[in-house]
Amino acid sequence: MSVMQVTEIMKILPHRYPFLMVDRIVEMDMEAGTVVGIKNLTMNEEFFQGHFPGNPVMPGVLQMEAMAQVAGVMLNSRAGNEGKTAYFMSMNNVKFRKMVIPGDQLRIEVESVRLRTRMATVYGKCVVDGAVVSEAELTFGYGA
């Protein structure tokens, strides 16, 4: 069950191919401050061509970017933030636990930690087949 298709996501996020890292939002609870997005990974992703030839692995920094984009959908959808952009400012307590490869479906789970008028902090994790592959605390600042 999809809450938001990619065309709706593109109305909220400024990112475009090849840098749009979320295909679908499958859950979003604004009251609880949680959102879940999906990124389907195929061998056609540009980053797999060079990272690494013969052993394609999704770069960890792109997993962080995927988390930030899923968080951005929620943050930019909050009342009062319409038309604003949540800019990714920092990441803390980052952990990479398993490799992400072509054919994997990245389930990106994000929950609010602190929400302020001009800043927000969230905890995010990427999950493949029920196993956490990466996690981090991300901080954002709002722009116009």
Rank of each mutant, 00 (worst) to 15 (best):
Ala79Ser: 12
Gly103Asn: 05
Val127Asp: 03
Ala66Phe: 02
Gly130Lys: 01
Thr42Leu: 05
Val127Leu: 11
Met99Ser: 09
Tyr87Gly: 06
Asn76Trp: 01
Phe47Ile: 14
Val61Met: 08
Val113Pro: 05
Val94Asp: 02
Phe52His: 09
Arg116Ala: 14
Tyr17His: 15
Gln63Lys: 05
Asn81Ala: 04
Thr85Arg: 12
Gln49Glu: 12
Met89Glu: 00
Met30Pro: 08
Val100Thr: 14
Gln105Phe: 08
Leu20Pro: 04
Asp29Phe: 00
Gly103Ile: 10
Val70Ser: 00
Val61Gly: 02
Val73Asn: 00
Thr85Lys: 12
Glu27Arg: 09
Arg78Lys: 13
Gly83Tyr: 09
Ile38Trp: 01
Glu31Tyr: 06
Arg97Glu: 08
Ala120Trp: 05
Gly80Val: 13
Glu82Ser: 14
Glu27Gln: 08
Gly50Asn: 08
Arg118Lys: 15
Gly60Gln: 06
Met64Ala: 09
Gly60Ala: 04
Val61Ile: 14
Ser112Tyr: 04
Arg114Gln: 14
Gln63Asn: 09
Leu20His: 05
Glu109Leu: 09
Leu106Gly: 11
Ser112Asn: 11
Val26Pro: 06
Val122Thr: 15
Phe19Arg: 09
Glu31His: 13
Arg24Ile: 07
Phe47Lys: 07
Glu82Phe: 04
Met58Leu: 12
Pro102Ile: 14
Asn76Ser: 06
Val100Glu: 03
Val128Ile: 12
Thr42Gly: 07
Gly72Trp: 00
Asp23His: 07
Phe48Gly: 02
Arg78Thr: 10
Gln49Asp: 07
Ala71Cys: 03
Val57Ser: 01
Ser90Glu: 10
Leu41Gln: 01
Val113Cys: 07
Lys39Leu: 05
Cys126Ser: 12
Ile108Asp: 03
Asn92Tyr: 01
Tyr17Asp: 10
Gln49Phe: 12
Leu62His: 01
Met64Asp: 01
Glu27Lys: 12
Tyr123Ile: 11
